[in-house]
Simulated scan of single mutants.
Amino acid sequence: RPWLASVASGELAEDTTNREMEDPENNVPKLPHDKKWKQQQLPAWQPIATPRNTVITLALTGSLLLIIGSILVASNNQITQIVERYDNRCSLNATRCNISMSINEDMENSGNPLHFSYGLTNYFQTFRRYVKSRSDWQLADVDGTLETCDPLEKYDNGTTGSRTLYPCGLVANSYFNDTFKAFYCPPNSGTCELLTGDDWKSTDISWQSDRDKKFKARPLASDETNVGPQGFPLPPVDNENFIVWMRVAGLPTFRKLYSTVGRSFQKGGEVRVEITNNYPVSSFDGTKSIILEEVNWMYGKNDFLGILYLLWGCLCLISAVAFAVYQHVHPRVIGDPDLIPAVAKEVATT
């Protein structure tokens, strides 16, 4: 069959390509402009991974990672942090519970206020049904559906009948409702002062984009309620502790900022935290803790990033040494024709 021979020789394919490129009206080929960009003739650099280049690249990369990791670890070690677990020391729904945080090192407020946070463990906020159960339209006070709040779009508390929840959804209605007050007791002093104002500030703790665009409070409508299954009124949706809670954590062990502390604490002093312990965690085997920490250019204390850089740096250096030793023991000449298989040689010569 003649057309098979044409296909085999490439004539048919070439003819088809030419016909597709021609302008049927003016019979002018539709060729790209004769420019390096459109003709794919731009200068390019294609590195060849020779053993020498590979060893040098791995050694330089490993050294750079070790330097960065050392800086991160050193900076992280300069941050003073105090963590106290309290769920096992405070009775649930008790009137008040006092936890003391001893200041063993000076905690300086040098341009960045200290952070007071609460921490939870074994709490999976990224569970699919949980994280999807919210209405960003309702939170931003714009027209939109509430069906995304399933299964907590409405709630019947047994007295007022079924009403639309505001805010609706599992994320909002699992709001962390423990409250905290802090008192600072200077060293060698028998009195403690309540932290207020800029010394205990619960504003500017959320993302500004969330405050400006995503959370807009409004009064309750007649067919709405802000009391959900937990049995307490939820705060306004523009409350910053609520906004912080609504930005779900990616890992089951997390902490969320509760307030900033705009003062320094001296070594030997004590911070006493008065806690209203309302939030149950025993049902999912979780724990609760309070965290007081300094803040520097790395934000808060976090060992993970620095250790990760050090591990990858060590891995790169070990790989560089392994490649160098192997190349020294079993050298390979680049471009040696004897390394080409015999079959490939026959194909190349025919």
Rank of each mutant, 00 (worst) to 15 (best):
R134N: 10
R134F: 03
S135R: 03
D136M: 07
D136G: 07
W137V: 04
Q138G: 05
Q138K: 03
L139M: 06
L139I: 05
L139G: 01
A140H: 06
V142I: 14
D143E: 10
D143T: 15
L146A: 01
L146P: 00
E147C: 01
E147R: 13
C149W: 11
C149M: 08
D150L: 04
D150S: 07
L152W: 14
L152Q: 03
E153T: 11
Y155W: 15
D156N: 15
N157G: 15
G158N: 08
T159N: 11
T159K: 12
G161W: 09
S162P: 03
S162N: 09
R163C: 00
T164Y: 10
L165M: 06
Y166M: 12
Y166Q: 06
Y166P: 02
P167K: 00
P167S: 00
G169L: 02
G169S: 04
L170W: 03
V171K: 06
V171C: 05
A172N: 08
N173Y: 09
N173Q: 14
N173T: 09
S174F: 05
Y175W: 08
Y175R: 04
F176R: 03
F176V: 10
N177E: 07
N177G: 01
N177D: 14
D178P: 14
F180A: 12
F180Q: 10
F180M: 09
K181S: 15
K181N: 11
K181W: 08
K181D: 14
A182R: 06
F183N: 10
P187L: 05
G190F: 03
G190N: 15
G190P: 05
G190M: 08
G190L: 08
G190A: 09
C192I: 02
E193I: 03
L195D: 07
T196M: 09
D198H: 13
D198E: 13
D198M: 08
D199N: 15
D199C: 05
D199E: 15
W200H: 04
W200E: 03
K201L: 11
S202W: 00
S202K: 13
T203H: 06
D204I: 02
